[in-house]
Design a protein around this nucleic acid. Sequence first.
DNA 1: GCTATACCCGAGTGCGTTGGTCGGGAACCG
DNA 2: CGGTTCCCGACCAACGCACTCGGGTATAGC
Lengths: 156, 156
Amino acid sequence: MRLSTKGRYAVTAMLDLALNSGNGPVTLADISVNQGISLSYLEQLFAALRAKQLVRGIRGPGGGYYLGKGSDQISIADIICAVDEWVEFTRCGGRENCRGGERCLTHTLWDQLSDEIFTFLSEISLADLVERGQRKARHEEPLTAQPLNGGKQRAA
Amino acid sequence: MRLSTKGRYAVTAMLDLALNSGNGPVTLADISVNQGISLSYLEQLFAALRAKQLVRGIRGPGGGYYLGKGSDQISIADIICAVDEWVEFTRCGGRENCRGGERCLTHTLWDQLSDEIFTFLSEISLADLVERGQRKARHEEPLTAQPLNGGKQRAA
DNA sequence: GCTATACCCGAGTGCGTTGGTCGGGAACCG
DNA sequence: CGGTTCCCGACCAACGCACTCGGGTATAGC
């Protein structure tokens, strides 16, 4: 799992889409202005998102983008994996032959951790985030205080 | 929160330390060999870790590194923050003045998510990982053999 | 059909990070 | 002392990120 500004851009752009797709498709130009991301860079990100069916593009005037599926069907992990393409690290089966024992143990432990982070992000959907944001707007409560989906305990 | 190869190196190195510090301090040379990380790069990482009191260095022959506190007192988030120094993004209170409403909402949602990931990693300690690995070692045979996350073809 | 809109695509670029090198210290031990 | 090992700073090649540029192509409205 990798977590960079690229993934953040993708997630916030998708959030923008989820929030605005009520009335017709959303143009990249709009998102560009809203999020302060360059248009061409957005096009690259959305090319990746489209390849993974996470968004659907409508060409021509009045066109734009829709979400590819329901916002509850799209997880944060989906989005990040789409743009960051999941570099496969520490799977010792590759060039580095673990000399049995120790080294491989640490790699394995890291893999476990990596997997847990992935699972964690898989369980949060766009809809979750949006719904939480709206709840916050209603109650006016600090966001960091309340843990969200109850599924946060790493189930191992 | 940022999650890159740098953080991974730091975490695996700290795991190495946690596993081996039973009999005396561990030298960076050992970790370098075990983990396949260059000695000089390790020194850079450990300079950051030492600054945050996560490790304690012993100079001279027979020297090396100890953990700075108990392995149950050191979280994964601590380690990653020490080496990646937590670039604070999207806190709109900075240079980007959110034009009220929308844009700030997506930023807020991302911040929430970021906080959650951080909390998640804060709740996993080195001791947790080690203990989990040992439990696994008792029950099953080689750690490398079994794909622990069900393959890796994640949601693609 | 024309044309404007907006998606689509690929090559290229400045820059910061990554991972590493080199050289020289400072503390410690026999 | 002399060797070991941590400590520190400067420097560097390669890479990925974020972005730009310059074209396309499909569609809607006229």
